[in-house]
Nucleic acid binder design. Sequence first.
DNA 1: CTTTCACATTCCATTATATGCATATGTTAA
DNA 2: TTAACATATGCATATAATGGAATGTGAAAG
Lengths: 123, 123
Amino acid sequence: MKSLQGFLKLISEETRLRVMMLLNEEALCVCELEAILDVPQPRVSKILSKYRDLGLVIDERKGKFIYYKLDLKDPLHQTIVSSIKEKRDTIEQLSIDYQRMLKKEEILNACQGSPTNVDGPSD
Amino acid sequence: MKSLQGFLKLISEETRLRVMMLLNEEALCVCELEAILDVPQPRVSKILSKYRDLGLVIDERKGKFIYYKLDLKDPLHQTIVSSIKEKRDTIEQLSIDYQRMLKKEEILNACQGSPTNVDGPSD
DNA sequence: CTTTCACATTCCATTATATGCATATGTTAA
DNA sequence: TTAACATATGCATATAATGGAATGTGAAAG
């Protein structure tokens, strides 16, 4: 119950849900999330720390950047995320975020290194 | 988004989720919920009022009692509830609640009329 | 070693949420 | 009309969530 409740509480807040849906697609670093979602960096970090507390993400450093990706071990969590993803087209904000993620190179003024623009971060 | 967010926020609180899972099984009145969940009546009423605000329940008076049942119009909401129900056995509190609901006649000291004990409320 | 930069964290004010208790409402039944 | 009971709501307060600004940390690159 605690696991489910913590999970639901996490995604009950809009920005946190948006983060989950993006990290469910691919690994992203803080500055990419900051740019895609257009929210301040400390807020992104705080959100990710909640994910970390619940053990829902894996982080991996690549050069200057730390990439986060979803790591849902609970099948129920996976099912819920999948069912939301299936309806993504019908949820405007999630669609927008997804489109922005696909074109993130164009909006990555946030990170100086523009990690996705270079042919691979120095790792 | 608002619909999904409101829904997730609603079930992000334990007692409210417990109510949802019960009302997903059958129509129940306030005093039955009070007895099954073992929470004070005003709290049950307040929870149901949130459901009403979001248009997620239908209420029907039968004699002295008002029976509530889930009325999920959004397929995504339905999918989420179904997926939780599928895992109910693995979530202790939800299992307990369900068992208590099946045997609610034995614990219905809360409602004087014991609605489920009589052969049908006077409606 | 020092600077830079990505990221994390703390502090603080604001706002929201939870919940117990008392009480109001409204229906039923006498 | 009144009494009884199911349900709803108001109020007060405890508690916590939210978010912005400033600052801390630590890896990387020079």
